[in-house]
Amino acid sequence: MTSIVKAPVLEVRNLVKHFDLRRSWFQQGTQKVRAVDGISFDIMAGKTLALVGESGCGKSTTAKLILKLLQLDGGEIYLNGELVSEATPEFRRKIQMVFQDPYASLTPHFKVKSILREPLVVHDICPPQERQNHIQDVLAAVGLSSDIASRYPHELSGGQRQRVGIARAISVNPTFIVCDEPVSALDVSIRAQIINLLLDLQENRNLAYLFISHDLDLVAHVSDTVAVMYLGKIVEKAPTGDFFAGPKHPYSKALLASSLVPHPGNRKQFVPLVGEVASAANLPSGCRFRTRCPLAIDKCAVIEPTLRSVGNGHLAACHRVDEIEP
């Protein structure tokens, strides 16, 4: 396959999306919500980048921008080294998505085979007489038996539906899949099955994933690189092992400290992060995190920190990063 080259499958450069906030009918665009404010990352074939952060930090907007479901206000997206200027059918085929809610993402009055046939027709994946077989193959690839094809979504369990959603995504042979909270709507005992399936598919098909999740344990398990977003910016990016061994940004530290360990033996004092996320429509001056940061100094209110290397591919955007204990 030609895609196994050193170039990343997806490159994102300085992605920007600002939404106009209409205060009233008459004053349009007086205020902007800076949902995504200049973020960059690469994802290599067969690798997973995890985006983590609180709700409203711009994770899902980033996904929509990459999928070209929203217009960019700035920045570039390169797929397999080529600049993406508009969403061609080929682009739509190569980038697929697995949704959070398997109850809402399947059309209820279509049988599974119709749901799976649609992308094959749209992208002309195989001759009509082979579609049936292709659907069977895809169902087998996600661990569903062939009789599922003639059922309706409401006849399936949550785990089975999510498998159908994954089957739909891989049926057109994509190179890149956006997984937006792919297991958070599923039961704990089903989650592990779906995660294993995603890991297998990645290995067998050399897929690149953008994995959006707020479950840090899960992120630690499935990802190769972690990027932490706060109010539209990436504040820290690091190889997964390094990140969990020693996050550098105070926000990342707070996130990790808030996540709970599933063991009663080391119950911790909750050290909640004070306050709520500032509004993306009314950002603080300087560092966006300074209003909640325990380490904030005067400089933080004046100069916005940029991502800089703290060694070994580990980037953090904090003025006081050198003082932070690993």
Binding site: V188, S189, A192, L199
Partner: peptide, 29 residues
């Protein structure tokens, strides 16, 4: 056995190799 299955299927980052298969409870409710 159900409780055990639940506990095992958690991704415990300290003890499990990254990207390895998680133990599962087969089947559905």
């Amino acid at each position: 056995p159900y409780t055990r299955g639940l506990m095992r299927s958690l991704p415990q980052i300290e003890t499990r190799p990254r990207k390895s298969h998680l133990p599962t409870i087969p089947g559905t409710v």
